[in-house]
Design a protein around this nucleic acid. Structure first.
Length: 261
DNA sequence: AAACCTCTCAACCGCCCGCAT
DNA sequence: GATGCGGGCGGTTGAGAGGTT
C-alpha cells in the first residue's frame, strides 16, 4: 500500500519507513506490552520506544480503540442503543462525549454503530407520534433533564447545559484512563494501591484491598480481575470491570445537579 | 460458481485546541 | 502575539466479509 504523502511530502523523509494500514499481532503486542509497562507519557515517542514503525497518532488510536483493557467486544445491547439514541438527540455527533456514558465503548465504535445501525432509523422514529422507550430509566431521566431545564429557564440551552455538565463530570474515568494514571504511579509501589483512586460509586461497593489485576503474562485476553477485584453487587451475576456504572448513578447525578434549588 | 452489491469497522486524514517556547 | 508541536476529535475511506442475484 503506497500513500501519496509517503511519496511526495519531503517532511516524510525521516518517516519514510513508517507503516500504515492494518496492525499485525506482533505490532499489537509491542504496543500493548509497552503501554502496560510504561504507560503513555508522550504518544509521539511511543513508537520509537516500543520499536514500532508507526506514528504516534496511529499508536494512540490503536490503543484507544482496540488494545486498552476494559473495552467491550460484544454487540451493543438494547440499553446501550437506547442511551446512544438519547444522547445523540441531545449532543449530536459528539462521539467522544457520548462514549463517556457508554463505558467500554470507544467513540469510533459508537460512530460506526451509529452510521451502520441507527442513523436510518432515527429519521423514521423522529416522525412517530408515539414513543416507546426501551429503557425507562435512561429515557425518562433524559426527558426529565430536558423538561426540568426548560421549565426552570426558557433561556437555558439544554444542550449547552448538558455539555457543560458532561465536560466537568467524567463518569467514565474508565479502566484504561485509570490504568494509565495508576500504573505509572504505582509501578514502584505495591500492587494493592491500584484501586486507591478508582472512581466507583460508593453505593455500589468495592471490595479491597486489591491484588494483581491481571495475570502474570499481562496478555489482554487474560485480563481478568482476581477475586479481590469484584463489585459488591449481588444482583449482577457477571463480573463487571470498573467500566461499569449504573445508569441511575450517571443520569441521576446529572439531573440532581441541574435541578433548580 | 461467479459477479455484483451492501454492510461493517479499522484506520487514516485534516482540522482544532491547548500548551510551551 | 507568532509559531510549533502533540493530543484529541469528527469525517471519511477502503478492504474484507457476507448476502443476493
Amino acid at each position: 500500500m503506497v500513500f501519496k504523502s509517503e511519496k511526495s511530502n519531503p517532511k516524510m523523509k525521516s518517516k519514510e519507513k513508517q507503516r500504515k494500514g492494518l496492525w499485525s499481532p506482533e505490532e499489537d503486542e509491542k504496543l500493548r506490552s509497552h503501554v502496560l509497562k510504561y504507560g503513555h507519557g508522550c504518544w509521539s515517542t511511543i513508537p520509537i520506544q516500543a520499536g514500532l514503525q508507526r506514528n504516534g497518532k496511529s499508536c494512540r488510536l490503536r490503543w484507544v480503540n482496540y488494545l486498552r483493557p476494559g473495552l467491550k467486544k460484544s454487540l451493543f445491547t438494547k440499553e446501550e442503543e437506547s442511551i446512544l439514541l438519547s444522547l445523540h438527540s441531545m449532543l449530536g455527533n459528539k462521539w467522544s462525549q457520548i462514549s463517556k456514558f457508554l463505558p467500554g465503548r470507544t467513540d469510533n465504535e459508537i460512530k460506526n454503530y451509529w452510521h451502520s445501525n441507527l442513523k436510518k432509523g432515527v429519521t423514521l422514529t423522529q416522525h412517530e407520534t408515539t414513543r416507546t422507550p426501551q429503557t425507562p430509566s435512561i429515557t425518562n431521566s433524559l426527558e426529565a433533564l430536558q423538561s426540568t431545564t426548560e421549565r426552570s429557564s426558557s433561556s437555558i440551552n439544554v444542550v449547552e447545559t448538558f455539555n457543560a455538565q458532561i465536560s466537568s463530570f467524567s463518569p467514565s474515568l474508565v479502566f484504561s484512563e485509570w490504568l494509565d494514571h495508576n500504573l505509572l504511579m504505582d509501578q514502584s509501589t505495591q500492587k494493592s494501591s491500584y484501586v486507591q483512586n478508582l472512581v466507583v460509586p460508593e453505593e455500589r461497593g468495592f471490595i479491597g484491598p486489591c491484588g494483581p489485576l491481571y495475570l502474570e503474562n499481562n496478555s489482554l485476553p487474560d485480563f481478568v480481575p482476581t477475586s479481590d477485584f469484584l463489585f459488591e453487587d449481588e444482583q449482577s451475576s457477571e463480573i463487571e470491570f470498573c467500566t461499569s456504572f449504573s445508569d441511575n448513578f450517571l443520569f441521576g447525578g446529572l439531573i440532581n445537579e441541574l435541578r433548580p434549588m
